[in-house]
Amino acid sequence: MSAYRFDRLKILVVDDNVHMRKLVVTILQAFGVIQIFEAESGERAWAILRESNPDVVVLDWMMEGLSGLDLVQMIRTDSQTPNPFVPVIMLTGHTHIDRVRQARDAGINEFIAKPVSVKVMMSRLMSVIENPRPFVRTKSYFGPCRRRRGSPEYRGPERRTEKTILAAE
């Protein structure tokens, strides 16, 4: 048993509010993350993504210009994306179910509802490390599987007619 080497991670923090960025960066630094990139806009984040190819993106939803949702869609589907599988953790004040669904449909991996708490931040980070979701490609969507963890206990209706599981590992 050993602790994670968070110092090996590169994390991009995207928020147009300088205070919220500082808060998130402070938490990540205390976790031991050293390489943290900051972007104050979706446009700047896209440039940093392409230059630095971070391991995780922590992203605000509502920003002027390119929003958090727009950026996630670019990360997942743009031909210039450096890594369509990069885990995206979305910070948001939106907690209404429709908004959660909207973000999920854009391809985010995890949510953090504001106010930001240290334990939730750690738990979401651990979640993308320990429990990555499979990816799904359909005509209209590419991103993490939107069914929570593909749970084997799922007892709801099976809506998919064709399922192909490709082991990429």
């Binding site: 048993m1 050993s2 602790a3 994670y4 080497r5 968070f6 090996r8 991670l9 391991d55 995780v56 599988f85 885990p87 993308v128 490390i129 320990e130 990555p132 499979p134 990816f135 799904v136 490609r137 359909t138 005509k139 209209s140 599987c145 809506r159 998919r160 007619t161 064709e162 399922k163 192909t164 599981i165 490709l166 082991a167 990429a168 590992e169």
Partner: peptide, 20 residues
Amino acid sequence: RQQPIELFMPPNMLKAKVGG
């Protein structure tokens, strides 16, 4: 659902990187 889907598990590079 009528459209076919492809479901796959990308390599867990994050886990490999942080170890532990």
